[in-house]
Design a protein around this nucleic acid. Structure first.
Length: 341
DNA sequence: AATGAAAGCAACCGCTCCCAC
DNA sequence: GGTGGGAGCGGTTGCTTTCAT
């Protein structure tokens, strides 16, 4: 435990910020900038550590901060991005102007909690590969599985309390409408889920347990349970066809998505290379095979649609221009797609 | 009206990365 | 190449607010 080195050197105040402290910090940064956060407290006359000042500024005092409820568009974006990059809140936040990673993280975590709670009453029998859910509904595993990964938008009866933010307030009916819209958005993805078969979860994510929260299923996956590069009927899904066509047109890697991280392009080598990679993926999958109900849930939640494809391109463009050192996510490494060939 | 539970949110903690030396 | 400090990030905690009974 203990505090940061910058906090040990002086007696620092902790806890909530007072308006006076906020004012001091804002006044200082707006006039001097924040070249070195460790120097900010002293120069601004605050008895806080630099990290605390930074956090306060970034999460609350920044002039461009946008507060209030997430719009449906923002929610969609968060969901899509989370499916792609996982718990990289700062990265997700970079796609939502005015939103902070902390805010998105809090939103996501509370959303996950709602989802889990919603499914607590569901008897185990309801989790059946063929009967568990209506077409547009996605299933959450019971809490004992600890599954909190990428997930559906749980609309319907389970509802939020009235909005508290004055800038984005709405009535309960509007709130309901808001989430119905979100459900409508999520529907096609659930329908497309059969297009995808699985492989490659985050390294180090054991089956079940809370770590699933940090290891959402990748957006694109491939089947390692059958013959190498076997085509599944599901791959005939229109999305897949259009997707592979787009890949071909874009001069991408043929059977694979363009790499999200540096070095992944090397995976598009020869068959021998691919074979080794797939074998490795198989072994990893064996090590972390989910429990049956979890597996079902993951299957339920594999969804893609054209909008996600566009999102994927955006993110890919960004990630491929970002130094790989900033993108160590195993999540990215699992982002492969094997086409119908 | 009182009280406990749930939800929302701000802030802290610990870790990793980056960079200067 | 090794080291230390600063910055940034994700996970977690705990306080406040709101809801339900």
């Amino acid at each position: 435990m203990g505090h940061h080195s910058c906090c040990n050197q002086q007696k620092v105040k902790r806890g909530l910020w007072s308006p006076e402290e906020d004012e001091k910090l804002v006044r200082y940064i707006t006039t001097h900038g924040y070249g070195c956060w460790s120097e900010v407290p002293e120069k601004a006359g605050l008895q806080r550590c630099g990290k605390s000042c930074r956090l306060r500024w970034i999460n609350y005092l920044r002039p461009d901060i946008r507060r209030g409820r997430f719009t449906p568009e923002e929610e969609k974006l968060i969901i899509s991005l989370h499916a792609i990059v996982g718990n990289r809140w700062a990265h997700i936040a970079s796609h939502l102007p005015g939103r902070t990673d902390n805010e998105i993280k809090n939103y996501w975590n509370s959303w996950i909690k709602k989802k889990i709670r919603k499914h607590v009453p569901a008897p185990p029998a309801s989790i059946s590969p063929t009967t568990a859910s209506p077409p547009n509904s996605l299933i959450a595993a019971p809490p004992c599985t600890g599954s909190t990964g990428t997930s559906s938008v749980a609309g319907g009866a389970n509802h939020r309390r009235p909005l508290q933010h004055p800038t984005f307030s709405c009535t309960a009916d509007e709130d309901e409408q808001h989430h119905l819209q979100l459900d409508a958005f999520m529907g096609p993805q659930a329908q497309a889920q059969q297009s995808i078969v699985s492989c490659g979860r985050d390294e180090g994510s054991p089956p079940g347990g809370a770590t699933m929260a940090a290891a959402p299923p990748p957006l694109f996956m491939f089947d390692t349970s059958g013959p190498l590069f076997a085509t599944t009927p599901a791959q005939e899904h229109p999305f897949i066809s259009s997707f592979t066509a787009a890949m071909a047109e874009g001069g991408c890697y043929g059977l694979q998505l363009p790499p999200l991280v540096d070095g992944m392009g090397a995976m598009a080598m020869d068959d021998h290379c691919r074979y080794e990679i797939v074998e490795e993926q198989k072994q990893q999958q064996q090590r972390r095979r989910p429990e049956p109900e979890l597996e079902l849930e993951l299957e339920e939640e594999r969804w893609v649609d054209d909008e996600q494809l566009l999102m994927w391109h955006d993110v890919h463009d960004e990630l491929t221009t970002t130094p790989s050192s900033n993108l160590q996510s195993d999540h990215h490494s699992s982002l492969l797609f094997m086409g119908p060939n």
